[in-house]
Amino acid sequence: MEARENKSYVIAKLRSEIMSLQGFRSPAAGSKPEKIDIGPVSAAFTGGIFPKVGVHEFISSTPESAAATAGFMATLAGQLMKEDGICLWVSSRRRVFPLALGFFGIEPDRVIFVDLKKDKDLLWTIEEGLKCDALSAVVGEVKELNLTESRRLQLAVEESKVTGLLHRVSPRLSNPVASVCRWRVNPLPSGRDNTLPGIGFPRWDVQIEKVRNGQAGRWQVQWSEDHFEHIGLVRVVPSRSFSKVG
């Protein structure tokens, strides 16, 4: 009996060691980590803590979902930047309207946009950004990304602890890449529980398809000015087949 307890203790210890090797900070260790508030979606992560050290992968297939994804990424970047952080926004064909970032908690003047034509330059720039620990976050909009390239980015992140948010805009292939988490964000219709006219707060269907040491899942959330709110299921969106992207 004692040996068994001992064994489970050893396993737990080894697990936490593996986690720290993978770039996760144990919630118990050291100071209290700053919390990134993503409402109910936090449940997907170990200890309910958003993994800051890592590359997050977002996939969008239509312009509408690309916009929703950009909005969601902006809320994350805004929380990572806090009061005085600086964020690098790298893209090949930028459509993000800086003025709109203010609605997602970012001071647009603290975002440095880098617009590049070549994919090679794009990845080099994202990697350089991820290596620079003075930045709070790097948002990269790429089209194609392979495993080797994503490994390089992941390694850069583990060194510098800068959060990488990679947006794969309508990729040809949904090939697996090295990332802590794979997201899909799609817009949801406005809530009709109120009788007010017009469109309301942005609502998203946030889907975590793959997460390291966590529980994948799907949540409907609303961005109410400065925080996420969980909303009841508005409508069952026909789910995508997971096997195709896995």
Binding site: D109, I112, F113, D115, C132, D133
Partner: peptide, 21 residues
């Protein structure tokens, strides 16, 4: 540090690729 990063980026792909508003 950020200015040095931007210098490196600009020297590779040109100053006209970096924007802040």
């Amino acid at each position: 540090t950020i200015a040095e990063l931007l210098d490196r980026l600009a020297s590779r792909s040109g100053t006209d690729t970096i924007h802040r508003y």
